[in-house]
Design a protein around this nucleic acid. Structure first.
Length: 110
DNA sequence: TTTCTGACTCGAA
DNA sequence: CTTCGAGCCAGAA
């Protein structure tokens, strides 16, 4: 099994990501706000670096515009896009299409 | 302790 | 359209 350990901040981020349903995505800013550190969207992405060896689906996290800003941290140039498309998410030019349809809003779902 | 970096976001020019 | 600056916070050196 996978070991999920790290700072409290990272644990919150990873736990949040694991709650995202398949075929859905979320943004850094909303995650930060949800875990209590509103405005620390950058720090959320920073925690993702450690998620590289975890079960955290970092590919489901995109920026506000639905742009795959973190794709450069994956292997290859379109791995992140392929992962998203595998879940039924349409991605064109590093940008998620139909963002409103694939965006998972915890404030509405929970 | 300070300083720097970054997978962010928004607003302005 | 693009580019820049400021604000925000966690972690590393």
């Amino acid at each position: 099994m996978s070991k999920i350990q790290g700072s409290a901040f990272q644990l919150k981020v990873w736990n949040y990501l694991k709650k995202i349903p398949k075929g859905k995505v979320c943004t850094y800013g909303d995650i930060a706000e949800y875990i209590g550190t509103k405005g620390s969207a950058r720090t959320v992405g920073y925690a993702m670096n450690n998620s590289h060896s975890k079960d955290v689906p970092a590919h489901r996290v995109v920026n506000r515009k639905g742009l795959l800003t973190g794709k450069h941290h994956f292997d290859g140039t379109n791995l992140m896009q392929q992962l998203l498309e595998s879940e039924g998410i349409e991605v064109i030019e590093n940008q998620i299409q139909n963002l409103d349809s694939v965006y998972w809003d915890p404030t509405k779902e929970l």
